[in-house]
Protein backbone atom coordinates (compact mmCIF):
# COMPACT_ATOMS: atom_id res chain seq x y z
CA UNK A 1 0.00 0.00 0.00
CA UNK A 2 2.69 2.48 1.00
CA UNK A 3 4.65 1.35 -1.97
CA UNK A 4 1.72 2.10 -4.17
CA UNK A 5 1.30 5.55 -2.65
CA UNK A 6 4.97 6.33 -3.07
CA UNK A 7 4.77 5.17 -6.65
CA UNK A 8 1.68 7.20 -7.22
CA UNK A 9 3.25 10.39 -5.88
CA UNK A 10 6.41 9.71 -7.79
CA UNK A 11 4.31 10.16 -10.90
CA UNK A 12 4.88 13.73 -12.03
CA UNK A 13 1.25 14.53 -12.83
CA UNK A 14 -0.17 13.06 -9.68
CA UNK A 15 2.27 14.87 -7.47
CA UNK A 16 1.63 18.07 -9.40
CA UNK A 17 -2.10 17.71 -8.89
CA UNK A 18 -1.59 17.04 -5.20
CA UNK A 19 0.65 20.07 -4.84
CA UNK A 20 -1.82 22.26 -6.74
CA UNK A 21 -4.64 21.10 -4.52
CA UNK A 22 -2.53 21.88 -1.48
CA UNK A 23 -1.77 25.40 -2.72
CA UNK A 24 -5.37 25.94 -3.74
CA UNK A 25 -6.54 25.22 -0.21
CA UNK A 26 -3.62 26.94 1.44
CA UNK A 27 -4.10 30.35 -0.14
CA UNK A 28 -7.70 30.93 0.90
CA UNK A 29 -6.90 29.43 4.29
CA UNK A 30 -3.92 31.69 4.84
CA UNK A 31 -5.89 34.64 3.50
CA UNK A 32 -8.67 33.95 5.93
CA UNK A 33 -6.47 33.39 8.94
CA UNK A 34 -4.46 36.56 8.35
CA UNK A 35 -7.59 38.48 7.42
CA UNK A 36 -9.30 37.37 10.59
CA UNK A 37 -6.19 38.18 12.61
CA UNK A 38 -6.17 41.64 11.11
CA UNK A 39 -9.82 42.18 12.00
CA UNK A 40 -9.40 41.03 15.58
CA UNK A 41 -6.07 42.72 16.17
CA UNK A 42 -7.21 46.03 14.75
CA UNK A 43 -10.29 45.76 16.95
CA UNK A 44 -8.08 45.18 19.96
CA UNK A 45 -5.93 48.17 19.09
CA UNK A 46 -8.98 50.38 18.67
CA UNK A 47 -10.89 49.30 21.79
CA UNK A 48 -13.46 47.49 19.72
CA UNK A 49 -14.69 43.91 19.79
CA UNK A 50 -14.41 43.14 16.11
CA UNK A 51 -16.34 40.34 14.42
CA UNK A 52 -18.54 38.78 17.03
CA UNK A 53 -21.56 36.89 15.79
CA UNK A 54 -20.60 34.89 12.70
CA UNK A 55 -19.92 31.26 13.59
CA UNK A 56 -21.15 31.57 17.14
CA UNK A 57 -17.89 32.30 18.93
CA UNK A 58 -15.56 35.26 18.45
CA UNK A 59 -17.02 35.63 14.99
CA UNK A 60 -14.58 33.03 13.68
CA UNK A 61 -16.64 32.47 10.54
CA UNK A 62 -16.70 36.14 9.61
CA UNK A 63 -14.31 35.79 6.69
CA UNK A 64 -16.09 32.73 5.36
CA UNK A 65 -19.28 34.75 5.40
CA UNK A 66 -17.47 37.62 3.70
CA UNK A 67 -16.08 35.29 1.06
CA UNK A 68 -19.49 33.82 0.33
CA UNK A 69 -20.91 37.32 0.16
CA UNK A 70 -18.35 38.31 -2.47
CA UNK A 71 -19.29 35.34 -4.62
CA UNK A 72 -22.94 36.27 -4.44
CA UNK A 73 -22.30 39.77 -5.66
CA UNK A 74 -22.76 40.88 -9.19
CA UNK A 75 -19.59 40.94 -11.23
CA UNK A 76 -19.71 44.54 -12.41
CA UNK A 77 -17.50 45.65 -15.25
CA UNK A 78 -17.55 49.32 -16.25
CA UNK A 79 -18.84 49.95 -19.72
CA UNK A 80 -15.71 51.65 -20.94
CA UNK A 81 -13.38 49.15 -19.33
CA UNK A 82 -10.91 47.19 -21.38
CA UNK A 83 -12.71 43.96 -20.62
CA UNK A 84 -10.05 41.26 -21.20
CA UNK A 85 -7.44 43.25 -19.28
CA UNK A 86 -9.92 44.15 -16.56
CA UNK A 87 -10.91 40.53 -16.13
CA UNK A 88 -7.43 39.06 -16.16
CA UNK A 89 -5.82 41.57 -13.79
CA UNK A 90 -7.02 39.97 -10.53
CA UNK A 91 -6.05 36.54 -11.83
CA UNK A 92 -2.57 37.75 -12.62
CA UNK A 93 -2.24 39.21 -9.14
CA UNK A 94 -3.30 35.93 -7.58
CA UNK A 95 -1.04 33.90 -9.87
CA UNK A 96 1.93 35.93 -8.75
CA UNK A 97 1.08 35.06 -5.18
CA UNK A 98 0.56 31.38 -5.85
CA UNK A 99 3.81 31.10 -7.77
CA UNK A 100 5.71 32.45 -4.80
CA UNK A 101 4.70 29.47 -2.69
CA UNK A 102 6.74 27.24 -4.96
CA UNK A 103 10.11 28.17 -3.52
CA UNK A 104 9.32 28.56 0.18
CA UNK A 105 10.98 25.81 2.22
CA UNK A 106 8.59 24.66 4.93
CA UNK A 107 11.03 22.13 6.34
CA UNK A 108 13.98 20.02 5.24
CA UNK A 109 12.87 18.73 1.85
CA UNK A 110 9.42 20.22 2.31
CA UNK A 111 9.46 22.53 -0.65
CA UNK A 112 7.39 22.46 -3.79
CA UNK A 113 10.39 22.93 -6.02
CA UNK A 114 13.87 23.67 -4.76
CA UNK A 115 15.09 25.92 -7.52
CA UNK A 116 18.78 26.65 -7.57
CA UNK A 117 17.93 30.30 -8.20
CA UNK A 118 15.06 30.28 -5.71
CA UNK A 119 15.38 33.77 -4.31
CA UNK A 120 16.00 35.20 -7.76
CA UNK A 121 12.80 33.53 -8.93
CA UNK A 122 10.87 34.80 -5.90
CA UNK A 123 11.89 38.40 -6.47
CA UNK A 124 11.06 38.20 -10.15
CA UNK A 125 7.67 36.62 -9.55
CA UNK A 126 6.71 39.02 -6.77
CA UNK A 127 6.81 41.86 -9.29
CA UNK A 128 4.16 40.19 -11.42
CA UNK A 129 1.40 41.13 -9.04
CA UNK A 130 2.31 44.79 -9.49
CA UNK A 131 1.85 44.40 -13.21
CA UNK A 132 -1.59 43.00 -12.43
CA UNK A 133 -2.26 46.10 -10.34
CA UNK A 134 -1.16 48.36 -13.16
CA UNK A 135 -3.44 46.45 -15.54
CA UNK A 136 -6.33 46.83 -13.13
CA UNK A 137 -5.73 50.54 -12.84
CA UNK A 138 -5.38 51.11 -16.54
CA UNK A 139 -8.28 48.98 -17.71
CA UNK A 140 -10.88 50.31 -15.28
CA UNK A 141 -11.53 53.45 -17.35
CA UNK A 142 -11.53 55.46 -14.16
CA UNK A 143 -9.21 58.33 -13.39
CA UNK A 144 -8.80 57.33 -9.78
CA UNK A 145 -7.97 53.77 -10.79
CA UNK A 146 -5.48 55.02 -13.32
CA UNK A 147 -3.74 57.16 -10.76
CA UNK A 148 -3.70 54.24 -8.36
CA UNK A 149 -2.17 52.03 -11.03
CA UNK A 150 0.47 54.62 -11.88
CA UNK A 151 1.33 55.07 -8.24
CA UNK A 152 1.72 51.30 -7.97
CA UNK A 153 4.07 51.33 -10.96
CA UNK A 154 6.11 54.13 -9.45
CA UNK A 155 6.24 52.25 -6.20
CA UNK A 156 7.37 49.06 -7.95
CA UNK A 157 10.29 50.81 -9.61
CA UNK A 158 11.30 52.52 -6.40
CA UNK A 159 11.03 49.48 -4.15
CA UNK A 160 12.17 46.62 -6.29
CA UNK A 161 15.74 47.91 -6.05
CA UNK A 162 16.12 48.09 -2.26
CA UNK A 163 14.27 44.77 -2.02
CA UNK A 164 16.77 43.06 -4.30
CA UNK A 165 19.77 44.81 -2.81
CA UNK A 166 18.71 43.92 0.73
CA UNK A 167 18.57 40.27 -0.24
CA UNK A 168 22.07 40.28 -1.67
CA UNK A 169 23.63 40.51 1.80
CA UNK A 170 22.09 37.23 2.90
CA UNK A 171 22.90 35.63 -0.41
CA UNK A 172 26.55 36.57 -0.07
CA UNK A 173 26.63 35.12 3.43
CA UNK A 174 24.96 31.89 2.34
CA UNK A 175 26.84 31.63 -0.92
CA UNK A 176 23.77 30.30 -2.70
CA UNK A 177 20.60 31.54 -4.35
CA UNK A 178 18.62 28.47 -3.38
CA UNK A 179 16.06 29.15 -0.68
CA UNK A 180 16.63 25.86 1.14
CA UNK A 181 20.35 26.39 0.66
CA UNK A 182 20.09 29.71 2.49
CA UNK A 183 18.31 28.04 5.41
CA UNK A 184 20.88 25.25 5.51
CA UNK A 185 23.66 27.83 5.50
CA UNK A 186 22.06 29.42 8.55
CA UNK A 187 21.78 26.03 10.26
CA UNK A 188 25.42 25.38 9.44
CA UNK A 189 26.44 28.79 10.73
CA UNK A 190 24.43 28.23 13.89
CA UNK A 191 22.77 31.61 13.89
CA UNK A 192 20.13 33.32 11.76
CA UNK A 193 21.57 35.87 9.35
CA UNK A 194 19.58 38.68 10.88
CA UNK A 195 22.27 38.98 13.53
CA UNK A 196 24.72 40.26 10.95
CA UNK A 197 22.18 41.55 8.48
CA UNK A 198 20.03 43.79 10.66
CA UNK A 199 20.24 46.55 8.08
CA UNK A 200 19.37 44.23 5.26
CA UNK A 201 16.44 42.83 7.21
CA UNK A 202 15.07 46.29 8.02
CA UNK A 203 15.35 47.42 4.42
CA UNK A 204 13.77 44.21 3.22
CA UNK A 205 10.80 44.65 5.54
CA UNK A 206 10.27 48.30 4.55
CA UNK A 207 10.48 47.44 0.88
CA UNK A 208 8.20 44.44 1.39
CA UNK A 209 5.59 46.70 2.99
CA UNK A 210 5.82 48.99 -0.01
CA UNK A 211 5.56 46.01 -2.33
CA UNK A 212 2.46 44.84 -0.48
CA UNK A 213 1.01 48.37 -0.67
CA UNK A 214 0.13 48.33 2.98
CA UNK A 215 0.06 51.37 5.21
CA UNK A 216 2.27 53.39 5.50
CA UNK A 217 2.83 52.72 1.80
CA UNK A 218 -0.72 52.16 0.60
CA UNK A 219 -0.74 55.08 -1.83
CA UNK A 220 -2.01 53.00 -4.77
CA UNK A 221 -5.18 52.35 -2.77
CA UNK A 222 -5.24 55.47 -0.54
CA UNK A 223 -8.89 55.36 0.29
CA UNK A 224 -9.13 58.98 1.38
CA UNK A 225 -7.45 60.26 -1.76
CA UNK A 226 -8.16 57.89 -4.63
CA UNK A 227 -11.37 56.35 -3.29
CA UNK A 228 -9.97 52.80 -3.60
CA UNK A 229 -7.26 53.38 -6.18
CA UNK A 230 -6.96 50.53 -8.66
CA UNK A 231 -9.63 48.57 -6.78
CA UNK A 232 -12.31 51.23 -7.22
CA UNK A 233 -14.19 49.52 -10.02
CA UNK A 234 -13.82 45.94 -8.79
CA UNK A 235 -16.58 44.09 -7.08
CA UNK A 236 -17.63 40.55 -6.29
CA UNK A 237 -15.17 37.71 -6.65
CA UNK A 238 -12.64 39.77 -8.61
CA UNK A 239 -12.35 42.03 -5.62
CA UNK A 240 -12.05 38.93 -3.48
CA UNK A 241 -9.07 37.82 -5.57
CA UNK A 242 -7.26 41.06 -4.79
CA UNK A 243 -8.25 40.73 -1.19
CA UNK A 244 -6.95 37.18 -0.91
CA UNK A 245 -3.81 38.05 -2.82
CA UNK A 246 -3.08 40.85 -0.37
CA UNK A 247 -3.22 38.58 2.65
CA UNK A 248 -1.53 35.64 0.96
CA UNK A 249 1.19 37.99 -0.21
CA UNK A 250 1.68 39.10 3.35
CA UNK A 251 2.34 35.47 4.15
CA UNK A 252 4.75 34.87 1.29
CA UNK A 253 6.72 38.06 1.78
CA UNK A 254 7.01 37.32 5.49
CA UNK A 255 8.02 33.75 4.68
CA UNK A 256 10.76 34.96 2.35
CA UNK A 257 11.99 37.36 5.00
CA UNK A 258 11.96 34.54 7.55
CA UNK A 259 13.86 32.26 5.20
CA UNK A 260 16.47 34.82 4.32
CA UNK A 261 17.07 36.41 7.68
CA UNK A 262 15.39 34.54 10.52
CA UNK A 263 16.57 31.00 9.92
CA UNK A 264 13.47 29.81 8.07
CA UNK A 265 12.06 26.58 9.49
CA UNK A 266 14.94 26.20 11.90
CA UNK A 267 15.23 27.05 15.56
CA UNK A 268 18.52 26.62 17.44
CA UNK A 269 18.60 23.46 19.50
CA UNK A 270 16.05 21.45 17.55
CA UNK A 271 17.47 18.30 15.93
CA UNK A 272 17.07 17.79 12.21
CA UNK A 273 14.88 14.72 12.62
CA UNK A 274 12.22 16.74 14.43
CA UNK A 275 12.47 19.62 11.97
CA UNK A 276 10.69 17.63 9.28
CA UNK A 277 7.56 17.81 11.35
CA UNK A 278 8.24 20.94 13.41
CA UNK A 279 9.59 22.94 10.48
CA UNK A 280 6.27 24.15 9.05
CA UNK A 281 5.07 25.08 12.53
CA UNK A 282 8.23 27.02 13.27
CA UNK A 283 8.08 28.79 9.92
CA UNK A 284 4.44 29.70 10.35
CA UNK A 285 5.13 30.91 13.86
CA UNK A 286 7.86 33.21 12.63
CA UNK A 287 5.66 34.39 9.77
CA UNK A 288 2.91 35.11 12.27
CA UNK A 289 5.23 37.39 14.22
CA UNK A 290 6.19 39.34 11.10
CA UNK A 291 2.56 39.50 9.97
CA UNK A 292 1.61 40.84 13.36
CA UNK A 293 4.18 43.59 12.98
CA UNK A 294 2.75 44.46 9.58
CA UNK A 295 -0.76 44.61 10.98
CA UNK A 296 0.49 46.68 13.85
CA UNK A 297 2.03 49.20 11.43
CA UNK A 298 -1.13 49.22 9.39
CA UNK A 299 -3.24 50.41 12.30
CA UNK A 300 -0.73 52.85 13.74
CA UNK A 301 0.80 54.84 10.93
CA UNK A 302 -0.61 57.39 8.55
CA UNK A 303 0.42 57.04 4.95
CA UNK A 304 3.32 58.65 3.19
CA UNK A 305 2.93 60.88 0.23
CA UNK A 306 4.07 59.36 -3.07
CA UNK A 307 7.01 61.73 -3.42
CA UNK A 308 8.09 61.12 0.17
CA UNK A 309 8.13 57.41 -0.58
CA UNK A 310 10.32 57.96 -3.62
CA UNK A 311 12.67 60.11 -1.56
CA UNK A 312 12.87 57.43 1.09
CA UNK A 313 13.65 54.75 -1.49
CA UNK A 314 16.16 56.56 -3.67
CA UNK A 315 17.90 58.76 -1.13
CA UNK A 316 18.01 56.43 1.84
CA UNK A 317 17.20 52.79 1.29
CA UNK A 318 19.17 52.18 -1.90
CA UNK A 319 22.43 53.82 -0.74
CA UNK A 320 22.20 52.07 2.62
CA UNK A 321 21.50 48.75 0.95
CA UNK A 322 24.48 49.23 -1.37
CA UNK A 323 26.72 50.06 1.56
CA UNK A 324 25.41 46.97 3.30
CA UNK A 325 26.41 44.81 0.32
CA UNK A 326 29.90 46.27 0.20
CA UNK A 327 30.46 45.76 3.92
CA UNK A 328 29.07 42.22 3.79
CA UNK A 329 31.29 41.39 0.85
CA UNK A 330 34.37 42.74 2.58
CA UNK A 331 33.63 40.70 5.70
CA UNK A 332 32.95 37.63 3.60
CA UNK A 333 36.34 37.94 1.94
CA UNK A 334 38.23 38.76 5.11
CA UNK A 335 36.78 36.15 7.44
Amino acid sequence: MTGFATDLFANFWVSLAAKLALVATMIPLIGMVIGFAEMKLSAKMQSRIGPYFAGGRWGWAQLIADGVKFFQKEDLIPEDADRPVFKSAPILVLVGTVALFVVIPFGPGLIFRDLSVGIFYALAISSISTIGVLMAGWSSANKYSLMGGLRAAGQLIAYELPLVLAVVGSVIMAGTLSMSGIVEAQIAAGYPFVILQVVGFAIFMIAALAELTRIPFDMPIAESELVMGYLTEYSGFRFLFFFLAEFANMFTMSAIAVTLFLGGYWLPGIPESVLVFAGPVILIGKVAILSFVMIWFRWTFPRFREDQLQTLAWKWLIPIALANIVITAIFKVLF
Binding site: Q46, S47, I215, P216, S224, W299, F301, P302, R303
Partner: peptide, 15 residues
Protein backbone atom coordinates in the same frame (compact mmCIF):
# COMPACT_ATOMS: atom_id res chain seq x y z
CA UNK B 1 -5.64 61.30 10.80
CA UNK B 2 -8.01 59.01 8.92
CA UNK B 3 -7.68 61.22 5.88
CA UNK B 4 -3.94 60.83 6.16
CA UNK B 5 -4.36 57.06 6.43
CA UNK B 6 -4.26 56.43 10.17
CA UNK B 7 -7.46 54.75 11.26
CA UNK B 8 -6.92 54.22 14.95
CA UNK B 9 -7.15 57.80 16.36
CA UNK B 10 -10.71 57.81 15.05
CA UNK B 11 -11.84 55.36 17.67
CA UNK B 12 -9.95 57.02 20.48
CA UNK B 13 -11.49 60.40 19.76
CA UNK B 14 -15.00 59.14 19.07
CA UNK B 15 -15.01 57.13 22.29
Amino acid sequence: PLELGAATPLFFALR
